[in-house]
Design a protein around this nucleic acid. Structure first.
Length: 782
DNA sequence: CTTAACGTTCTG
DNA sequence: CAGAACGTTAAG
């Protein structure tokens, strides 16, 4: 595929009729109405109105990138202009009905603007049925009892009462106007498979699709869903076989046992919190069911804040006043600040997950938002991402997907680790269900790893017996449809807008200091508070390291979360990330202005995925971890180290893509001297090299790395050759040539003797003092 | 009218 | 099936 692509590109300029004819014989039929005529599958009714840009969303406001596939096709960028597609970065997040669209019944346009009343707006706005394509005002429908199902994913889109009533739902879930599907190269959007089981949904809820509306702060649902995750109750990793059963329950029943854990936790909360919570309770008379959990959610936030108040030493506000500020924030901000649906894409308001739980009765044709099982919820989350400028998708990344992003350094304590393990398992669950549906065999069960696999921890005696790296996920795992937004264009506000139009006294930077003390999952909670917090908490300073390792299912949502946070370090080890996903990611972690990815960990991924590095340039990458990548051998290493294949003509970069790598981890790979030769030629800055468990590495390899004239000879400071059984005592002699070497790890090298190590130390002692840190682990004595 | 690009079909 | 192509629509 890549080949044919590049072939195409070479011919781009020579746009000629013959070529076109050669490539694609002109259709014999005359001017068909290809864009209009409906496929036979399309059911009934009117010709569909083509949707058009909202012109307000972030994507619409962006300029063409000039680099994507479609830009390169454009005439203005020197392309042939055949594809006629919008720039990938500009694909509208919420395509709207054309201005000329009118109601089928009354022949009038949307009238929602004429009303202030939120609740009635819905009935006056044009709604397009994704099944029959009819565009009507819900108000104009005479159907009294039937209810339409609002499609969260697209403004003004629903399954009209007629179709819904006729049981036609499901087939055309995608709805019109959704070009963001798998047919877009570079798009991560996937067609969503209809969810079969519709496990009940006791509550038929009226959704408010009104994009103009401003969902009020209703943390209940988010928090409600999030809380279980927050509970750091110790839960040991269940056996994979158990997972299915157990997690099925989690999804079937919102009130799962983890929630209970949460409850336990809060009992220990501080008195001022309960007092405060009492106050909140008064504010919320509705939502009986969620009230409790809502409180718990807030309470948890306060607990976090309270627990950490000891860390605020460097802050002026770190006193009681501040505490009060912090607390009051939770009351004030949400109301005013999260009045947010009309961020940059008013048309594309959030799918208002908040609010969807709220019963609103009385309006005539009721639109119902079916509550579905995880798939549906996920989809809702996705649609939020689609429709909201500043949205909460990021927490979904952590909560909806139950796959928290975590910070390595912060994960010191066991409890947190267990917590995350648990969270990850929850994440697995989703894919469990999906894979089960699709293949009959849960993917995770087929690819279950011991929780800790490290070169030395994993099966020392038989390093060749490595764990099978995850395969590409089954399609179904990637089905979510999702538009990924780069970070917002406008800078986030410096102060929190309050309900009364004023702003909060504390400045962003001060908040940032507070946020800096929170763990990633806590930040995710904060992101649900309001729009402003959402943006603040997404600040890349808070997310320099993102660790998604061992998340068995990498979802588009997670990818978007990563992009939004622009981490410097990204760990995707032992994930099932696909080539397309990785490639997409790399291209969106810009290699410029200091905001690029410096550390990329892909150990245990498939070569298919890792090969994404071949076609992209990541000149600023400092650390590359490709340990235990199945299928990564010499030939693949050559591809990795050769110049990128995906450069635009004229911008060809002939330098090695990984020329700035200083830390290269190749443990467990079947590479030979061929690769090492390349490495020593192409990576002049290489300082740390991990070749442990590489069975083909021998003394000659070491000789290569340390030979006269190679840059590695002087740049290498650390080398790991542990469990390289072909390496012998002789290698130690080669290391004497290395000017900067500080650590040589030869542990478990059968052919390396302790005597030789001691001799090495003795001989080196004249110039550089070394010592044996452990048997066969030589370290420079500092 | 021109330009952008949607939503479909065609193709490998 | 993904990607390319293109007729046609929407907007200005």
């Amino acid at each position: 595929m890549a080949l044919s692509l590049s072939g195409d590109e070479e011919e781009y300029d020579s746009e000629s009729e013959q070529q076109r004819v050669a490539n694609r014989p002109k259709p014999k039929i005359g001017p068909t109405t290809s864009a209009v005529k409906m496929p036979s599958s399309r059911s009934s009714s009117g010709a569909r109105r083509r949707r058009t840009r909202c012109r307000k969303c972030e994507a619409c406001l962006r300029n063409e990138c000039g680099e994507c596939h479609f830009c390169r096709d454009m005439k203005k960028f020197g392309g042939p202009g055949r594809m006629k597609q919008s720039c990938i970065m500009r694909q509208c997040i919420a395509p709207v009905l054309p201005h000329t669209a009118v109601c089928l019944v009354c022949k009038e346009a949307g009238k929602e603007d004429t009303l202030g009343e939120e609740d009635d707006k819905f009935n006056l706005m044009l709604m397009e049925c994704s099944i029959c394509n009819e565009i009507v005002h819900p108000n104009c429908l005479k159907v009294s009892d039937a209810s339409g199902v609002v499609n969260d994913e697209l403004p003004n889109c629903w399954e009209c009462p007629k179709c819904n009533h006729a049981g036609k739902s499901g087939k055309q879930k995608r709805g019109p106007g959704f070009k963001y599907a798998s047919n877009l190269p570079g798009s991560l959007l996937r067609e969503q498979k209809p969810v079969k089981e519709e496990a009940d949904v006791s509550s038929a809820i009226k959704r408010r699709p009104d994009r103009e509306e401003t969902p009020r702060f209703r943390p209940e649902e988010p928090l409600h869903r999030q809380l279980p995750l927050l509970s750091p109750c110790s839960l040991s990793r269940p056996r994979p076989e158990d997972k299915l059963r157990k997690k099925r329950k989690l999804f079937d029943d919102d009130e799962d046992e983890e929630d209970v854990g949460m409850r336990k936790k809060e009992r220990s909360d501080e008195p001022y919190l309960s007092k405060f919570l009492h106050q909140i309770k008064k504010e919320e008379e509705e939502d009986g069911r969620y009230e409790d959990e809502n409180d718990r959610g807030r309470e948890h936030l306060f607990r976090i804040a309270a627990e950490r108040k000891g860390h605020f030493g460097d802050m002026e506000q770190c006193n009681d006043d501040f505490k009060n500020e912090l607390l009051s924030q939770f009351i004030k901000t949400p109301v005013g600040d999260s009045d947010q649906s009309h961020c940059s894409s008013p048309q594309a308001g959030p799918s208002s997950e908040a609010g969807s739980e709220t019963q609103e009765k009385g309006s005539r044709p009721k639109a119902r938002h079916k509550r579905r099982l995880p798939h549906r919820e996920l989809s809702r989350e996705l649609s939020k991402a689609l429709n909201q400028d500043i949205q909460k998708s990021d927490d979904c990344l952590d909560t909806e997907n139950r796959q928290p992003i975590k910070v390595e350094p912060e994960m010191e304590n066991e409890e947190s680790k267990r917590f995350f393990r648990k969270a990850i398992e929850l994440g697995d669950q989703r894919s469990h269900l999906k894979s089960k549906e699709m293949n009959g065999t849960p993917w995770e069960l087929r690819h279950f790893y011991p929780s800790q696999i490290t070169p030395l921890g994993f099966n020392r005696s038989t390093p060749t017996n490595r764990p099978a790296p995850p395969q590409s996920p089954p399609k179904c795992i990637q089905m979510e449809r999702h538009v990924i937004r780069p970070p917002p264009i406008s800078p986030p506000p410096d102060r929190l807008p309050l309900k009364d139009g004023r702003t909060h006294v504390i400045q962003r930077e001060v908040w940032m200091k507070i946020f800096g003390h929170l763990a990633h999952q806590e930040l995710c909670v904060c992101m649900r508070i309001c729009k402003t917090w959402n943006r603040w908490c997404c600040d890349k300073r808070l997310w320099t390291t993102i660790d998604l390792s061992r998340c068995t299912s990498v979802t588009p949502l997670m990818l978007s979360g990563i992009i939004r946070r622009q981490p410097l370090s990204l760990d995707l080890s032992w994930t099932n990330i696909s080539k397309k996903q990785l490639s997409w990611l790399i291209n969106r972690l810009p290699g410029m202005e200091g905001s690029s990815l410096r550390v990329l960990k892909l150990s245990g991924c498939s070569w298919a995925a890792v090969s994404a590095l071949c076609s992209s340039s990541c000149p600023l990458l400092r650390t590359l971890d490709v340990q235990w990548v199945e299928g990564l051998k010499d030939a693949q290493m050559r591809d990795l180290l050769s110049p990128p294949t995906d450069n635009r003509p004229g911008q060809l970069d002939n330098r090695c893509k990984l020329r700035n790598v200083q830390d290269l981890r190749l443990a467990g790979l079947d590479i030979t001297d061929t690769s090492l030769r390349l490495i020593s030629q192409q990576m002049p800055l290489l300082s740390s090299l991990d070749l442990s468990y590489c069975n083909h590495i021998n003394d000659q390899s070491v000789n290569l790395l340390t030979a006269a004239g190679t840059t590695t000879r002087d740049s290498l400071t650390e080398i790991n050759l542990s469990v390289c059984n072909r390496v012998t005592d002789h290698s130690l002699n080669f290391f004497k040539r290395c000017g900067s070497i500080c650590q040589i790890d030869l542990r478990f090298c059968k052919q390396v003797t302790k005597t030789a190590c001691e001799r090495f130390i003795a001989e080196m002692s004249v110039s550089v003092p070394f010592r044996l840190q452990e048997e066969k682990l030589l370290q420079k004595a500092s």
